[in-house]
Design a protein around this nucleic acid. Structure first.
Lengths: 352, 352
DNA sequence: GACTGGTTCGGAAACGATTCAGATACTAGC
DNA sequence: GCTAGTATCTGAATCGTTTCCGAACCAGTC
């Protein structure tokens, strides 16, 4: 509290009491190793000197443990909190951390970060990498660190690194099956790619072929269902999974003539924006246009959004669990299930 | 990457190249202090040995800086992500951190944490304390640390510690004025106290008098407007600022006979739940019941909620800014303004 | 050849703790 | 009185860096 006085250290306390450093250390970490009376004297002297327990950094250095796990985010941290699905993931990780008495270090690694210093300076026992583009410099930086690593969602298929994700392809196939079953043949596909910006008018085939992240998986799931059927899919890149981005793209997509009868979204965040856009345009859902999402965030239920549920908080917990029990043989892959949740935002196509 | 081989240190690299540790350190931290050729040789040897830059913990110890700021949360971390206002605060802090190239350490300090180890083990350059009850053990633990501290929201009036908050009292007075002006005289007040659980049926006067946190401020603002007027206020403690909690309490509150004509909520999170409850009960808003919130989270606009806007992300940024420029003389208090935002969820009282 | 000014490099002391292998004293048992 | 055993405490090495201060070197000038 008093910055003027020289920093109190364990050695200073030891000197004041007239015991060795070992004994002071024991007073804090192994009370059974010294008499209660001496311990009291040490604690009193410590309080007197303004010493309040071992320095966490020095302790970390010596013990080789930081009691913290690091989370490296694909998007900029401040934008991460705009996507409710990312927030749910954070929640899962936070719960796992607090259950084990550790802290959670959020490491900024957005695309605008020009260097990887933050990763290199992070004092953690392990890293969870969430939704990073392949060949990202931060991923490379994390890999050079000796701590255990778990990748969530993206990139898939990194050799030697444990992975947690869901069956995105199957999940998106399910919801595509549902939409096609309702008769929709003109579909706007709102996406947010973490792997880069697309050309002006990407088509779904090239997305499915070229995107190696979550988006590619879902696009392939869509293709699995469409097959050779005569379905027109227009792709709109929203660049970020946020409601306002989805609203903007949906407004544009719904202005097309002929208008798509369904708007399928990469995420609930985008879909919630799309619902807003439809309302703004005076379109009824699902009579005039059907809307679907992905994730099943809490707001989706309130909005009556048809979507695919994935156990997002559990992803965070599983990732931390993998960190704690390092692999003994080979790469571990945890693939969690998805479920189609049909609500009121989808209905039969009505083309007139 | 290869855990079997002995950990590569700066000293090992120095030995391999045949230079001193100083020189290797300079190769990483001050490239201008040695010839480019030697630097290349050192980096090559480092790569060969599997050394990838200075150990962050050792570096922290020596340099007395952790490049991270700590956030101590009043609620359990996993519940923090349920309140959209807390998420917005996090977003503000995250932005401030990434702008300055630091990481953000989330330190669990919920009421169920039995010890303060996490605080004591946190390697950070400063602490932001968010919405903690007074006399909390974690706050005490933080205060023993020599790092700078900033308190946000609660507790107010801690001597010597910088503070960031908003004019909660004035803000709540504004919205109370609005509601009373619409003729409401039977009001349900949904609260979430961070300072403890109340008796079964607290009344607003005792809340205003006894709560020393944000809730107390707002309750006092309410009282300022009500004065001696004949207004019945029933208080419902939701215990956590989450939509489902608000919904449950609102259902109960709206079952009373005579029914309150307005539900005023401590936060938007509760109010969003209250809106849901009203819909479930078949009550029209605002014809049958008016609902108000506080915070103006993004979802409030979509829901058409009358509320009080507070610049939550800015709170996070200002807190970090205070951390960076330690006070030279006396305690600093930053009080940000609030604005009444009238939307469609409030209307004239219609008592029949 | 001594001196100067500018590079480049090394020695060694911090930074603040933990921990293992003893040392010391003290009690109990015979 | 002697030994064994236990409770209590200490010495010293170690974790992996950074950095101050001085030394070495080299070319050029008087």
């Amino acid at each position: 509290m008093d910055p003027s006085r020289p920093r109190a250290t364990l050695a200073a306390v030891a000197a004041a009491v007239g015991v060795s450093r070992t004994t002071v250390s024991n007073a804090y970490n192994r009370p059974d190793q010294l008499s209660a009376a001496l311990r009291e004297r040490i604690l009193a002297a410590a309080a007197e000197l303004g010493y309040h327990g071992p320095d966490p950094v020095a302790r970390s250095l010596r013990m080789r443990t930081a009691s913290a796990v690091g989370l490296v985010f694909g998007d900029s941290l401040s934008r991460a909190f705009v996507d409710p699905n990312a927030v749910e993931f954070l929640q899962g990780m936070a719960r796992a951390c607090e259950d084990t008495g550790r802290s959670l270090l959020l490491v900024p690694a957005g695309p605008e970060a020009t260097n990887t210093d933050t990763v290199q300076r992070a004092a953690v026992d392990g890293f969870v990498v969430y939704s990073l583009p392949p060949n990202d410099q931060h991923l490379a930086a994390v890999r050079t660190r000796p701590q255990p690593i778990v990748i969530v969602d993206s990139p898939r298929d990194v050799p030697d690194i444990d992975f947690v994700g869901v069956d995105d392809r199957v999940g998106f196939a399910k919801i595509t099956h549902h939409v096609l079953g309702l008769g929709h043949r003109r579909i706007a596909f709102l996406v947010a790619s973490v792997t880069g910006v697309w050309s002006d008018t990407p088509d779904v085939v090239s997305v499915a072929e070229r995107d190696v992240g979550v988006l590619g998986e879902r696009a392939r799931g869509m293709q699995d269902e469409i097959g050779a059927a005569d379905v027109q899919v227009s792709v709109w890149d929203c660049r970020a999974s946020a409601p306002d981005m989805g609203a903007a793209a949906a407004r544009e997509a719904l202005a097309a003539d002929p208008r798509p009868t369904a708007v399928m979204c990469f995420s609930d965040a985008l879909a919630l924006g799309a619902l807003q856009a439809a309302a703004d345009l005076g379109l009824r859902v699902p009579e005039d246009v059907s809307v679907t999402g992905f994730d099943d965030v809490p707001a989706a239920a309130a909005a009556g959004l048809t979507t695919v549920r994935q156990p997002t908080p559990e992803k965070g917990q599983r990732a931390v669990a993998l960190l704690d029990k390092p692999a003994v043989d080979g790469r571990r892959v945890v693939e969690l299930p998805t479920n189609l949740i049909v609500r009121g935002s989808t209905g039969p196509a009505r083309d007139d």
